[in-house]
Simulated scan of single mutants.
Amino acid sequence: MTKDVILSICGLQFDSLETQAPDPVEVITVGEYYKRNNKHYVLFHEMMEGFEGSTKNTVKITDNTLDIMKQGVTNVHMVFEKNKKNITCYNTPYGNLMIGIFAKDVKIEEQDENIAVRVEYALDINYEHLADCQISINIKSKDAKDFVL
């Protein structure tokens, strides 16, 4: 995997009250990849409409765990660990939320020029179940022969 990567993050939220399939939210951006101590890291910045500054994102992938850390306009450290519930404070410009993440499944597929992560989890906000969710992250080397957007 090269240092320069394209990162695709796609999320789905399933509300028990909805009768139709949810619309996915997808972000595609460039990032920097590195591997240290058998852990994969991807760094990228995101802008939030209506706010000055950016948020630095660090994605850390280990054997069965996905960590997403945000610092800047929003601040949070989310840990997705199979069959464990992790609670954290999500600081946003609109206020703070206590979120709980219970990862039901964490799948990681690693290839030479691609890493794919898929997590299924239950999301709690302020100790109440909000939704069942999925997040898919695809990290692809910019130099990959089969690179396609």
Rank of each mutant, 00 (worst) to 15 (best):
V148R: 00
E110Q: 11
I137A: 05
V73F: 13
Y33G: 01
D15Q: 12
V117R: 00
E109C: 15
K85I: 03
E113D: 14
I137G: 04
I137D: 03
L7T: 03
E18P: 05
D15L: 12
N57I: 07
I137Q: 05
K142H: 03
K39D: 05
V59Q: 03
Q13V: 03
I68F: 14
Q134F: 10
K35D: 02
D112M: 08
I125E: 00
G95F: 08
L97W: 05
Y90E: 08
M69N: 09
E18T: 10
Y33T: 01
A21T: 04
T62I: 06
L66S: 12
V117Y: 00
P24E: 15
I108E: 13
L149V: 09
K140T: 11
M48K: 03
K85V: 06
T92Q: 05
L130K: 13
N114P: 03
H45Q: 06
C133A: 13
S136C: 07
S136E: 14
T55E: 09
C89T: 13
D143Y: 01
E49V: 09
I101K: 02
I68S: 02
T19P: 01
T92E: 07
N126Q: 08
N83S: 07
F147N: 11
K82V: 02
V73A: 14
K104L: 03
P24W: 14
E110A: 14
M1P: 06
V106E: 15
S141N: 14
T2Q: 08
Q13A: 10
T88H: 02
S54A: 11
T58L: 07
T88E: 01
T19Q: 10
S141G: 15
M47P: 00
E110K: 09
E109A: 15
T58Y: 06
H129D: 08
F44R: 00
K85W: 01
E52Y: 05
V76R: 00
I99F: 04
Q111I: 02
R118H: 07
I61T: 08
D23I: 13
P93I: 06
S8P: 00
M1V: 04
E49D: 12
T19L: 14
N38W: 06
N126T: 11
Q71T: 13
V27S: 13
Y94I: 12
D112G: 14
G53S: 08
N37I: 04
F102V: 02
T29H: 11
I125T: 02
D143N: 07
R36Y: 13
G95V: 06
L12C: 05
N91A: 15
Y34Q: 01
